[in-house]
Design a protein around this nucleic acid. Structure first.
Lengths: 113, 113
DNA sequence: TACGATGTTCGACGAACGACGAAATTGTCG
DNA sequence: CGACAATTTCGTCGTTCGTCGAACATCGTA
C-alpha cells in the first residue's frame, strides 16, 4: 500500500471568516482549555503532550479538537507529534481585541487565588 | 399570615468581585442569551416577557437565571413583573473592556447573515 | 372574589459535554 | 523488525445543557 495514502484525515480548521464568536466563547469557557490558550499565548508553538494540565491524554486530545474546530488554535503535524499554535492574528482580524481582553480578564481573576 | 413574609427568596446575584470569567463566557456562549444581552445593551431596563426571543416562558426564565447567577444581568422585582438590566458598570469594573469587545465582535458576525 | 397576566419552579427528555481507558495509528530508534 | 513514544479514535459513563409543558405563586383589576 502506497505511503502517500493519508490514513489520518487532514486537520479541519475553519477559515478566519468562518470563525463563530459563540463557538469561541464556548471554547474558552472551560478551565482546561483556558489554560492551554494562556500557555500558547506566551509561546509561538507547543507540542500537545507538554501542557501543564492534569487530564488523560484522550481528554486533552478532545480539548484540542474543540479549540481547533472553533478556530482558536491551529494544529500541524510533524512526525508523530502535533504542534498547536494560537491563531492570534486570525482572531484579531476577525474579532479585534477579543483575545487580549479575555486573557487580561482571566489573568486578573487568576491572580486572586 | 403577615404580608411582610417573603415567599419568594431574594434574587441571588454574585458580588462584582465574585463574578467568574468562565461563567460569564459560558453565559454569553448561547444565541438566546446573547440576544438578551444585546437588547439590554440598548436600554437601561426591560421586563422579562418583552424580549424578541422565540422560546417558551420557562426556557426564558432559565436563561435569565443563568445570566443573573453569572453576574451579567441584575434583576429586580416590581409587582408581578421582573425587570432585567445589564450589569455594565460592574462588568466594566471587573473585566474592563470585555462586554464592549464581545458585543462588538458579535455585531460584526451578526451583520454577515 | 375570581380572573387574567406575568413569571417561576418542577420534572422530563434528548443532545451535548467532559472524563476515562483500551485500542489503533504513526513515526523514531535500537 | 520490534519496542517505544506521541497522539487520536472509539466506546462508555455520568453530568450538564437547552427545551418543553404542567402546575404554582403573585399581583392588578373587573
Amino acid at each position: 500500500m502506497p505511503r502517500s495514502t493519508r490514513r489520518r484525515p487532514a486537520l479541519a480548521h475553519p477559515e478566519t471568516r468562518e470563525i463563530d464568536l459563540l463557538d469561541v466563547l464556548h471554547a474558552l469557557a472551560d478551565p482546561t482549555r483556558m489554560t492551554i490558550v494562556r500557555v500558547l499565548r506566551t509561546e509561538p508553538e507547543r507540542a500537545c503532550g507538554t501542557f501543564p494540565v492534569d487530564v488523560a491524554p484522550s481528554t486533552l486530545s478532545h480539548h484540542f479538537k474543540v479549540l481547533r474546530e472553533s478556530g482558536v488554535i491551529r494544529q500541524r503535524e510533524e512526525a508523530n507529534r502535533r504542534f498547536s499554535a494560537l491563531r492570534a492574528t486570525d482572531l484579531e482580524q476577525r474579532f479585534p481585541g477579543l483575545l487580549d481582553t479575555v486573557l487580561a480578564a482571566y489573568a486578573r481573576t487568576a491572580a486572586e487565588a
